[in-house]
Amino acid sequence: MVHRNSSFLDGYHHEPTKVLPFPSQLVYNRVGKCGSRTVVQLLRVLTERNHFSLINSDIHNKTRLNRIEQMELINNISLGDQPYLYTRHVHFLNFTRFGLEQPVYINIIRDPINRFVSNYFFRRFGDWRSEQNHQIRTPGMKDEERYLDISDCILENYPECNNPRVFYIIPYFCGQHPKCRDPGEWALQRAKENMNRNYLLVGILEELEDVLLLLERLLPHYFKDASAVYHSSEYKKLGNGTNTMKKQVPSPEALKVLFQRMRYEYNFYNYVKDQFHLLKQKFGLKTRARAPNKKYEIASQVESPGPSHDDDDNAWLQDIYR
């Protein structure tokens, strides 16, 4: 029999291996004006409750990176204390290109015209918090640009209201390749491929409550109790400040022109919506007809065109928001 000297273990404390959830690396490359500030506020509450690291970048205006910048960002992300959720406005990054493990991605998108309108007025007038604090959004903007009627911007082909500026959502999924910035079939298909291969969930903002329910089931370590927090009175006080100020609806003529410019965006949006509804079905969540959420929709303010000889030509007005 071997007699072990107990003093051999004196002063030694074995640290058990930390068991990490799967996935332990999560990236939310949030799309601008698609409810991301609402979700980030929610994540700040959840990180305390669910014990994960939230790495929230304060860089908002640099979504496209050169190779060195990609490598530096990917290395910095990978050094985060796991489990972590990294979030930033940045186009899709391919970690495997630099020999690192690809994290799991999530994202939320929104009806493209609704997103565009929200961004147009947010750049000019900010949100409720800006209004309350008397902050001027985009201080360097001249008054003739700040108060430019959105319909005039669209119909008179101002750069802000034309391609490639309105080709916005797809590059977040297509990635950093220069062709991802060009409105067309190549970027659209690559965005769909990346979504299918790398994203665990891409939800739609119009059904945010169902997005949170699915995230709770798919990623409980990060999103446990997300729905309860979202509906709590304390959280609603935080969320009320994110509403964009002074939004107006473009004219039906301007909307029609904008829709044509954004046809690739709508192809992708409808594809995402279909995939999201399929995932909801798998988890037993029903997609019901519902009134538009005024916080996220302008559809309720757009009148459907009346009967005319051009009914077929105007059918898009009814289809955009289906």
Rank of each mutant, 00 (worst) to 15 (best):
L214M: 05
H13E: 10
V27D: 01
R137A: 12
V249G: 03
P220T: 01
E144T: 14
D319A: 13
H91K: 11
V31S: 01
F116V: 03
L26R: 00
N5Y: 11
R146W: 08
A187Q: 03
G241I: 07
L79V: 10
K142R: 14
K256H: 12
V257H: 07
G284L: 04
H13Y: 08
R123L: 11
R288T: 12
N157M: 06
N56A: 14
L208Q: 02
N66F: 00
F92H: 09
L208M: 08
L205H: 04
D111I: 08
C161M: 05
K18Y: 04
Q318M: 13
N243E: 13
D111S: 11
K237P: 04
C174P: 06
D311A: 09
Q301D: 08
G306C: 05
L215R: 01
V211C: 07
G175W: 07
K256W: 08
Y235V: 00
I77D: 05
H13I: 15
Q132N: 09
E69W: 02
S24L: 00
L218G: 01
L188A: 02
L26G: 03
S304D: 11
G32W: 05
Y321Q: 06
R165G: 04
E303P: 07
F173A: 02
H91D: 06
N119M: 10
N66Y: 02
R190H: 15
F173G: 01
Q132M: 12
N196V: 11
I109V: 14
H14G: 04
E101W: 06
V229Y: 00
G184C: 07
G184P: 06
S304Q: 15
D143A: 15
L214N: 01
S304W: 15
Y105M: 02
V272K: 00
V117R: 01
K295E: 11
T242F: 15
